[in-house]
Simulated scan of single mutants.
Amino acid sequence: MDARPVAIVGYDDAELLDIACVTTTLGMANGIGDLRTPYRVTVVSPGRLPVTCGPGLVLQSGQALERLTGPVDTLIVSGGLGHARAATNPLVIAHVQRLARVSRRVASVCTGASVLAAAGLLDNRRATTHWRFADALAAQYPHIEVDPDPIYIRDGNISTAAGVTSALDLALAFVQEDHGVELARLVARNLVTYLQRPGNQAQMSMFTAAPPPDHDVVRRTVDHINANLDGDVSMAALARVAGVSPRHLTRQFLTHVGQTPGRFVRHARTAAAAHLVVTTSLPLPSVAARCGFGSAETLRLAFLRRYGIPPSRYRDVHGGTERTTPRA
């Protein structure tokens, strides 16, 4: 094969970033990598109809979905507001199923996972999607293990990426898999982004999650937790800060935050530690102490649970980031 055919499935109301993150990354790899097997990327759509991508944006399709034949190196289904219609379109589903059988690698971005799910390609697999749509996907397809946290998940030859710009991380991972880490690093530098975030990194972190809710008790408690990660943030202490019983505080957190205070504390500590690991040269025991972990080993276990890799590896993956040594 003198090229790697990559087909990106678009449809009415697809998300342009889902498509462009892939096309730009692979096109950049072609341009700077002098590849013996370059990527040949085609956007396909039902009937070769133009792909609407939001107000004033229309993307020309390169080929009709139903006329595309294999073999295909990588089949990628984009997400977008039109994903639910695409997932109930018999033509789309039938041809995604057909092409998946002749593709080395199959993937979805964002809500494109609903199309793969409707095609039966995610049955009995672990998958992710945009965090806003994860519960709906899990409810509709109980045979899929939906995990809303990771940026992308690989299960066999099928990958699912989370929301929107996670397509960039997945595309960089494909470049690294196909052509090595050095080209992936070079492409990332040209794109002015990280090499790529680890697939198991949470798509919602303390820096991108929604602000504390308007509920006064919960907001006051969240502010206290974030300001005192290395202090006493036990349930009893938080209940005293909030001026309510531990049981009432738990109920309010479940209602307004979607998790218990204890779990919120664990996630906040781990996210803060991840930020320090990447942006500073602090030794891991110091990171652990600043973020309320009893030891470097406790920090390591927290990283393994949350990100799937230890903090030392997490720091290596983000190599090249300028680090500082904060004051004590």
Rank of each mutant, 00 (worst) to 15 (best):
G308C: 00
A210D: 08
P212S: 09
E322K: 10
P326L: 13
E182Q: 14
E297G: 11
R48M: 14
V51M: 13
R132Y: 02
P150S: 00
R36F: 07
N30F: 11
R185V: 13
T129L: 06
T24D: 10
Q140L: 13
P310W: 04
S61C: 12
T24E: 15
R98G: 07
A167F: 01
T279L: 04
R220H: 08
D214F: 07
M28K: 14
L26S: 12
F293Q: 00
V278I: 09
G79L: 05
T208H: 02
T128V: 09
R40K: 12
G62Y: 10
N228M: 06
C110E: 02
T37S: 15
V265N: 02
Q203W: 07
T23S: 15
A236S: 12
R290D: 11
D18I: 03
A64Q: 12
T298D: 15
T250W: 03
L17E: 04
H224C: 02
G163N: 09
L81C: 06
R85E: 08
H143M: 11
T129R: 03
V181Y: 12
R300H: 08
P71K: 05
D232G: 01
A272Y: 05
L122K: 03
I19H: 12
G163Y: 02
L16V: 13
I158M: 04
D216G: 13
R40Q: 14
A171T: 08
Q63C: 08
N124F: 03
L16G: 02
G47T: 08
A138N: 04
M206D: 06
A14H: 07
R219A: 12
